[in-house]
């Protein structure tokens, strides 16, 4: 995705560091950077005057001055996803379909994980990485699977980096991800309200409003959030083109991201990618406000517990035992 485009397109900082730049282009880039100021240089958002088209400049200008997603009217939401689709085409030559599907009425998502049944195949992790356009370079993952000794229920005591044939006798496997707390500490820590809980219970991030301060990451007691140190690198043919504004669209550099229960899928009635990929059926997902749903069956008939329940964060993610 990245290799086939001119190196100067991304911004001045890239131009300076690119290997093939000679002295003249170096000085040229430096002068542009100096004119624009060092603060702007750090963000890497100054376009190369030769590379960026006027259409791209216009779209980026409009994008820069848009509102927080929660304050946008429906027209503004539609306008911004149209701009982002066009920008993806102009910048990365990607044909994406972005949605802004609203929450479904009378739906509150909940999730349960069967620690008896999980065998540690990690199909969920690779499905999540693929679905959510996660950075392949730093190997960002929303889900972690821990190989646990019997008797322990705290994932920090488990082995999160196993790679051997599974399942191993007398071990069990426990998966963690964002638990979508009903009383989420991360949303309170955000100084600019770029992250919040949607009415259907999904904790989301407005990637364009986020300033990348990572307070939310520090506030999360579950290590549920990830930070983009660079722009995600994904092979072009592996990009998931069905995207959501609050979900799996390719994050800009320097933004927080996290599991969104695959908001682009769940709001159209689909299961999250991890649930669909799980070969053992350890993952249960459904509507907590539907008394006939699978998740309600688990809560009613199974022994369930939540991680660090004493913190009062009210995660909507239960572990259960067969």
């Amino acid at each position: 995705m990245k290799s086939d485009k001119p190196s100067g397109r991304k911004g001045c900082s890239c131009t300076i560091t690119s290997a093939k730049s000679d002295r003249r282009s170096f000085l040229k880039g430096l002068s542009i950077a100096a004119a624009a100021g060092s603060a702007a240089l750090a963000t890497g958002c100054i376009p190369d005057v030769n590379a960026a088209t006027s259409e791209e400049m216009k779209l980026r200008w409009q994008e820069f001055f848009k509102d927080n997603y929660r304050l946008m009217t429906q027209e503004e939401k539609d306008a911004t996803i149209a701009r982002l689709e066009r920008l993806a085409k102009l910048q990365d030559d990607l044909d994406i379909q972005m949605s802004n599907d609203p929450p479904i009425d009378r739906v509150l998502y909940g999730y349960a994980f069967n620690i008896t049944r999980c065998e540690g195949f990690m199909e969920c992790v690779s499905a999540c990485v693929k679905e959510n356009n996660l950075d392949r370079k730093t190997n960002t993952q929303y889900i972690r699977i821990f190989e646990m000794e019997p008797g322990n229920l705290d994932p920090s005591t488990g082995d999160g980096q196993y790679f051997h044939k599974v399942p191993v006798e007398n071990k069990f496997y426990m998966g963690t991800q964002c638990f979508h707390c009903e009383n989420a500490p991360c949303t309170k820590a955000c100084p600019i309200k770029a992250t919040w809980t949607e009415p259907d219970g999904i904790v989301v991030v407005d990637y364009d409003w986020c300033i990348g301060c990572r307070y939310c990451q520090a506030a999360c007691p579950y290590y549920g959030r990830r930070f983009n140190w660079g722009k995600p690198e994904i092979p072009k043919e592996e990009v998931t083109t069905k995207q959501h504004y609050l979900g799996n669209r390719i994050r800009p550099k320097g933004k927080m991201e996290k599991c969104t229960f695959c908001i682009q899928r769940t709001r159209t009635g689909q299961l999250p990618a991890c649930v669909e990929a799980c070969p053992t059926g350890s993952r249960v997902f459904g509507n907590l406000l539907d008394p006939d749903s699978e998740i309600r069956f688990v809560l009613k008939h199974k022994k369930v517990f939540r991680m660090k329940e004493e913190l009062g964060t009210e995660p909507k993610f239960w572990f259960f035992i067969d």
Partner: peptide, 26 residues
């Protein structure tokens, strides 16, 4: 899913295998 959609009825337990991926350090 039906029972036999996931389990081989002649050998219902899942076979041991390598995980699909691995995780980087925390």
């Amino acid at each position: 899913y039906n029972c036999a959609s996931c389990h081989d009825p002649h050998s219902p337990r899942f076979e041991k295998r390598y995980p699909a991926t691995y995780s980087p350090p925390l």
